[in-house]
Design a protein around this nucleic acid. Structure first.
Length: 488
RNA sequence: GAGCCAUUAGCUCAGCAGGUAGAGCACCUGACUUUUAAUCAGGGUGUCCGGCGUUCGAAUCGCCGAUGGCUCACCA
């Protein structure tokens, strides 16, 4: 305590705490049984008026008024006012009340009533001090605006900015609704390792860690895919996992180094089945959590109602960039088309690379309403089944909302010989310096060699879905403790 | 990783042609038995993000650094 730097307000609070202790009050109390939450009392006032209640929460405001004072108590649901009269609580407790600070945690027994001004309140008969708050809270009116403090000390953000709590309640409901939806489709929720020998299933740089006893470098997973597909091989025909993945890349309004992915795999389905699940599940989740599938994101109305628009990548590029890859067949022609649009590309870029580039540069930002973009080039889809009618393309789609990728899905590549060739090409890319190219996973190949049924697989970025559904501008607004630099 | 912007009281912010810092809320003292951003009368509580420099003098100007935000790069 002595080496804690104390400002004036903290010194005063410690002094008040000591005075309470001298009065025999336990300033860090124990179990306390509540009968109602603040919101229950407010919602059911007609039935509860005149009855006794016991509430508890954090003191958010104190309005002293001589011998009859008011305070606002906040609990998880909301806030409720208490009315503290000297003739109702007695002189001793009234003296204790004057040692309360904003931020203290208290319990109150009393009668539910409505004040002359109409506010539902609790007329205190007994006050129970529960926990002392030694630091002054941010201001009640402007709240806490400093984003750095909001992220670093999220508990303060939660205490003083009520809408923040609502966003995280919504996040919880969204994930619950997804589980509910998938459970009803007989999907089995599973958990797979986060420590991987090979960081596969996506194109991303991994975090590296180390196991001491095994003296083994391990990777934090960048995707769930390869383990879940092993489970499909094992006969778990419908599986999903909602879990954290880690990608050692930049931080932005849309990116956090650790984020939550939903991946699901359904045997005997394909990417068409995955489109149906995606659009039906997201509209159902929106209805369950928000009561509607018509939402507004950052001022733009968005309809999540199924079915969503479906367009091939070629048609999308033709529409938004004016380039027709049905006609352009060679790498040379493709590079020329990119050059004509003043788009920079690598010297050795293939037709497929250029297709992907044009799409990202010219098309993505236009896909505001939910859109499935289908049939990605094989070069950027190393785990996806080839299209029968065009082996340069794959049965893969990505779903876009508000110009952002929200989901990625495909008919899973289950031909182990083709998969081996794809890995070999990825390894060539790695050898050329592409750190994000997939590493060959021999154990996964072996699993495929035992035979995997035709399967549809889907990945959805949960954080981005929550952003869309809660109208959050930044991914940090839907992650309780976003990654920040150390303050030390 | 690069560019731009920000950092002043517990919180929200002013102060910047350089003259050693202010407001509101919070806090302290007093008044008040139905207030609610309670009110009324008093009280300013500070490493002006850190360091170095320019200057008689720096919150203010310059350089270096820290942290955060936005944009770009990378990615989902």
């Amino acid at each position: 305590m002595s080496d804690l730097p104390l400002n004036e307000q903290m010194q005063i609070r410690i002094k008040k705490m000591q005075e309470l202790e001298q009065m025999g009050v336990d300033t860090f109390g124990s179990r306390f049984c509540r009968t109602h939450s603040s919101q229950q009392i407010i919602d059911n006032f007609e039935q509860l008026e005149g009855q006794q209640t016991t509430i508890a929460g954090r003191v958010m405001a104190i309005r002293e008024h001589g011998k009859a004072c008011f305070a606002t108590i906040a609990d998880f649901d909301g806030q409720i006012q208490i009315y503290v009269r000297i003739d109702a609580v007695g002189e001793d407790q009234f003296a204790q009340f004057h040692l309360w600070d904003i931020g203290d945690i208290v319990g109150v027994d009393g009668e539910i009533f409505r004040t002359h001004r109409g506010e539902v309140s609790v007329k205190a008969a007994k006050l129970t001090f529960l926990s002392k708050s030694l630091r002054p809270l941010p201001e009640k009116w402007h709240g806490l605006k400093d984003v750095e403090i909001r992220y670093r000390r999220r508990y303060l953000d939660l205490i003083v900015n009520p809408e923040v709590k609502q966003a995280f309640v919504a996040r919880s409901k969204i994930i619950r609704a997804i589980r509910h939806y998938l459970d009803n489709l007989d999907f089995l929720e599973v958990e797979t390792p986060t420590l991987h020998h090979i960081a596969g299933g996506a194109a991303a740089r991994p975090f590296i860690t180390h196991h001491n006893t095994l003296d083994l470098d391990l990777y934090m997973r960048i995707a769930l895919e390869l383990h879940l597909k092993r489970l499909i091989v094992g006969g778990m025909e419908r599986v999903y996992e909602i879990g954290r993945v880690f990608r050692n890349e930049g931080i932005s309004i849309k990116h956090n180094p650790e984020f939550t992915m939903l991946e699901l795999y359904q045997a005997y389905s394909d990417y068409n089945g995955m489109m149906e699940i995606t659009e039906n599940m997201i509209s159902a989740v929106s209805k369950e959590v928000l009561g509607s599938d018509q939402i507004e994101y950052q001022g733009t109305p968005i309809s999540l109602a199924a079915p969503w628009r479906r367009i091939t990548m070629f048609d999308a590029i033709k529409e938004y960039a004016g380039v027709d890859f049905n006609i352009i067949k060679t790498d040379e022609e493709a590079r020329q088309a990119a050059a004509d649009l003043s788009i920079e590309f690598a010297d050795n870029a293939s037709r497929g690379d250029i297709i992907n580039l044009l799409f990202e540069e010219k098309v993505e930002e236009n896909l505001i309403q939910p859109t499935f973009v289908m049939d990605y080039p094989i070069e950027v889809s190393p785990l996806t089944k080839r299209k029968k009618d065009d082996p340069s393309l794959t049965y893969r789609f990505e779903a876009f909302i508000y110009g952002r990728e929200l989901a990625n899905a495909y008919s899973e590549l289950n031909d182990p010989l083709d998969q081996r060739q794809r890995f070999e090409r990825q390894m060539e890319q790695r050898a050329k310096g592409d750190e994000e190219a997939n590493e060959a996973d021999e154990d996964f190949l072996q699993a495929l060699e035992y035979g995997m049924p035709p399967t549809g697989g889907l990945g959805i970025g949960i954080d981005r879905l929550v952003m869309i559904l809660t109208d959050a501008a930044s991914i940090r607004d839907v992650i309780l403790f976003p990654t920040l630099r150390s303050r030390e």
